[in-house]
């Protein structure tokens, strides 16, 4: 049954895409810049944080800004995705109760919507690289398979959190505080090597390794094997847990929302 859900979702990909697109259109309807507000606000934030933190950490701006831009854009994607996943199914209550749709479609819609947002924010990274004339080089290729892994993980997150949060209404605030904590303990705005001789601990943080497999190539380096092992292991665990959970509770989601 869960497999049928997946198959139906794939056959409805046009609906899924349109829903995601309309979500963005609807959010910015009537505004002058439209979705480019996303680009602008991310750009302003990266610029401001770049100045502050390069002073605080006493790093060369030229060095720090590309790092910060990529980190901020990727983390922004993840944080918003998690927050929206928590309301994924509860927000679609009306739709879930009035027509039969595969549940994965709601997840895929959220992922696509956030990928569209990400696409607008990537402009900031490109601009920073352009202004500083700091291009990653051929290593950037490695970011592509890593992004694909992100997409699969994203779908798993939306389904897992969406279902859990529909059932247990305490989970959204828990997820929010976990994400906030993760933001501080993960090298998002600070460089991994700043942690000094505790650096060996970092591969145990799945947030870090998943971030690093995309970020490092975009900065021109290929992450070490331990990063990949950690990122892939945590993805397999995430997807496995999600699949088993989804297969079990799929029939009950309609009662929970």
């Amino acid at each position: 049954m869960a497999i049928r859900d997946l198959r139906e979702t794939i056959s409805l990909w046009r609906l899924c895409w349109t829903l995601a697109e309309l979500d963005i259109v609807q959010r910015y309807r009537g505004s002058l810049l439209g979705p480019f507000w996303l680009t602008l606000s991310t750009g302003v934030m990266v610029g401001a944080m770049g100045v502050i933190y390069s002073t605080l950490f006493q790093i060369e701006m030229h060095d720090y800004l590309p790092f910060l831009a990529i980190s901020q854009v990727l983390w922004g994607y993840l944080a918003v995705l998690v927050a929206e996943s928590c309301q994924g199914f509860t927000m679609s209550e009306g739709m879930i109760r009035s027509m039969r749709m595969p549940f994965l479609l709601y997840g895929a819609r959220m992922v696509l919507r956030n990928v569209l947002v990400l696409a607008h924010n990537v402009v900031v990274i490109v601009l920073v690289d352009l202004v500083l004339w700091n291009w990653p080089g051929p290593a950037a290729i490695f970011a592509i398979p890593a992004m694909l892994l992100w997409l699969i993980d994203s779908l798993a997150i939306t389904i897992l959190l969406g279902a859990i949060c529909a059932r247990f209404r305490d989970v959204p605030p828990i997820a929010a505080s976990v994400m906030q904590m993760a933001f501080f303990i993960t090298p998002v705005i600070w460089r991994p090597h700043l942690i000094g001789d505790k650096e060996w601990l970092l591969p145990f943080n799945p947030f870090f390794t998943l971030l690093e497999i995309v970020r490092a190539p975009l900065l021109g380096t290929v992450p070490g094997w331990e990063i990949y092992v950690s990122a892939i292991t945590s993805s397999v665990v995430l997807c496995g847990v999600t699949w088993v959970f989804f297969a079990r509770v799929r029939g009950r989601i309609a009662f929970w929302v």
């Binding site: 409805l12 309309l22 009035s98 027509m99």
Partner: peptide, 26 residues
């Protein structure tokens, strides 16, 4: 086709045309 809910999952923030399109795609 199930006519169960008066709004049939229509999204009030979208235009009539967009809702029609979604229904068609569905």
């Amino acid at each position: 086709n199930a006519l169960l809910d008066p709004n049939l999952g229509m999204n009030p923030n979208l235009t009539g045309r967009e809702n029609i399109m979604l229904r068609g795609l569905y």
